[in-house]
């Protein structure tokens, strides 16, 4: 294993340790996904009665959507750990150690991937108890995990890049929320594409949140069109890689101002 990979692993371990040692944070991280599912499934229960929604139950429709939405909501906080590190001397010490900038970003992204997979499995479990059915089987579940993790990596990298640029907790959270909610609602996360206005459907086709939701739902529904899954997942891989690279570049901006 290369030094950079080892370094990423150590940093992921550090983040997981912090999560373990902060019970309130851990509880919030585990309970939040359940709340999303319970809340939205109750709130929008009757949408299946709208003609054209199809004959799937709303909980079956919603579960992959909530997994995708939860991935964004959690990943949006990724940059806050960078800001904590900057407010203390940790960032400066790390940047004067053999840790590479890529390893610093990778450490956060890998941690985010672990958390996203754990949260997604919780949502799958709760969904099952509430009556959701996953006809796509194990392969379908795996696609959902991959797609939501890729989306989480994209948003986490974006959050890290913004953290390095704005260097303030308040600005970071404000910008994240500004992005997360519209991107969620301009997608098929909560509502079938057949039922939204045409322009929303058009915007959604450029929206990574919708790519993840579409791939997930397609894979989970059974009778999967794997071409659609591969296409949407491919976009997500490219975007996650691009954003990870940009986040690594954002260290330059930070180091110019220290």
């Amino acid at each position: 294993m290369t030094t950079a990979m080892m370094h990423s692993l150590y940093l992921t371990g550090r983040s997981l340790r912090i999560l373990r040692r902060e019970p309130a944070y851990l509880a919030f991280t585990l309970i939040q996904p359940m709340v999303w599912l319970l809340l939205f499934s109750q709130l929008f229960e009757s949408v299946t009665e709208i003609p054209g929604f199809g004959d799937t139950s709303y909980i079956t429709y919603l579960t992959p959507g909530v997994i995708v939405m939860n991935a964004i909501m959690t990943a949006n906080w990724a940059g806050t750990s960078f800001i904590d590190d900057m407010n203390r001397g940790v960032m400066d010490r790390n940047l004067t150690s053999p840790l590479s900038r890529g390893a610093l970003i990778n450490g956060i992204l890998s941690y985010q991937a672990v958390v996203t997979v754990a949260q997604s499995l919780i949502i799958f479990g709760i969904g099952l108890l509430m009556g959701a059915r996953y006809d796509g089987g194990v392969a379908g579940v795996l696609v959902v995990l991959v797609a939501s993790t890729l989306l989480a990596i994209f948003f986490a990298a974006l959050s890290c890049a913004m953290a390095l640029l704005v260097r303030s907790q308040e600005s970071l959270i404000g910008m994240s929320m500004f992005l997360a909610l519209p991107l969620t609602f301009l997608s098929s996360v909560l509502m079938a594409p057949e039922l939204v206005p045409g322009w929303v459907d058009t915007v959604a086709s450029f929206n990574p949140v919708d790519w993840a939701a579409t791939a997930s739902r397609e894979a989970l529904a059974g009778a999967t069109d794997w071409g659609v899954v591969a296409g949407q997942t491919g976009f997500l891989v490219a975007l996650a890689l691009l954003m990870g690279w940009l986040a690594t570049r954002a260290f330059r901006a930070y180091q110019r101002t220290v």
């Binding site: 550090r14 912090i18 407010n87 203390r88 001397g89 940790v90 400066d92 010490r93």
Partner: peptide
């Protein structure tokens, strides 16, 4: 390097 601000976890 020991920065001015604390850097332990």
């Amino acid at each position: 390097y020991v920065p001015q601000k604390p850097c332990f976890d």
